[in-house]
Structures are given as structure tokens and as C-alpha cells.
């Protein structure tokens, strides 16, 4: 009995802990996502018609940029609804 109560309390505190940590990192994650997008945008701007970076540098990085390219695509698809994205990031209802 004591043991199961102890486990229950432990799980409860763990979930509080997880929730607080998630809250603490949410804004950092948003900042990280934006930085990753800017990074991809700088490198693959020629995909969307803005040329800048020497192509050779971009081509060498291409095989390692899978995650950023996916984010790049998602951002582009959702780009017409940026206000909604911002609100959802900051939990505005």
C-alpha cells in the first residue's frame, strides 16, 4: 500500500517536473526553430530565387541538411498563416 502510494506520488511529481521543463524550454525551442530556418534560408535561398552563398558551399552541406530542409518546406507551406503560428507558440487561445 505504502509502496504504491509512494510510486503514485513519485509519478505525480515527475509529471509536474516534466511539465515545468517543457514550459521552460518551449520558448528556447521556438528560438531554435527560427534560427534553424534562418540557417536553411541563408544556404538554400537560391531554391527560392535569391542567390547569395557560393553554390559550392551549399552543395557540400546538402547531404547533412535533411532536418532543416523539412522545416524549410513546412515553414513555406504554412507561411500564409504566420499570425496563427505565433499565437499557438505562446498559447494564446
Amino acid at each position: 500500500m505504502n509502496n504504491s502510494l509512494f510510486n503514485y506520488l513519485k509519478d505525480l511529481l515527475d509529471s509536474f517536473d516534466q511539465h515545468l521543463k517543457k514550459g521552460a524550454t518551449e520558448e528556447l525551442e521556438y528560438e531554435l526553430e527560427e534560427m534553424e530556418f534562418v540557417f536553411a534560408l541563408l544556404i538554400y535561398s537560391s531554391f527560392i530565387g535569391i542567390s547569395g552563398i557560393p553554390e559550392g558551399v551549399a552543395i557540400e552541406l546538402l547531404p547533412y541538411m535533411g532536418k532543416e530542409l523539412q522545416q524549410f518546406e513546412e515553414k513555406t507551406v504554412n507561411s500564409d498563416d504566420q499570425l496563427a503560428q505565433l499565437f499557438s507558440k505562446f498559447d494564446f487561445e
Binding site: K21, K22, T25, L28, E29, L32
Partner: peptide, 10 residues
């Protein structure tokens, strides 16, 4: 930033 997030989440 990635490292920071990973550290906070332990």
C-alpha cells in the same frame, strides 16, 4: 541552444 534544451530536460 540544442545543448541547452537537452540539459534543461535532463
Amino acid at each position: 541552444r540544442r545543448e541547452m534544451i537537452s540539459n534543461i530536460r535532463n
